[in-house]
Design a protein around this nucleic acid. Sequence first.
DNA 1: GCATTGACAATAG
DNA 2: ACTATTGCCAATG
Length: 111
Amino acid sequence: MTRNTSADNTEPASPMLTAICQVLARIPTGQVITYGDLAAMAGYPRAARRVGQLLRQLPANTTLPWHRVINAQGRISVPEPAASQQRQRLQQEGVITLAGRIDLARYQWRP
DNA sequence: GCATTGACAATAG
DNA sequence: ACTATTGCCAATG
């Protein structure tokens, strides 16, 4: 079947989103990654906005470390109130936010 | 189908 | 350091 009807198939998982989630799950505690780098590591160098779109739909109970994803300026891109939670989680892992910024040179994940 | 939106990023002023 | 502009591309209306 080249076509899939909503009635008998509920699997929209594209390879891109799958790859993004797999990379995301690998990010170590206490480190961060940017949207663009996460996308690039998943094999889609121009999909930074896709990453945000995916993270936005993650269920609240997800075990994925969504809070370790920040933008290329070292800032949190999430609107409040989620931003506070993200800062708190990061600080809990030892990632400090100074003047609203995170030192990428220090915390960015490089495998 | 076209227009707008968005948890981005690079560049220019 | 900050704002504006442009490119990007799937999702949404």
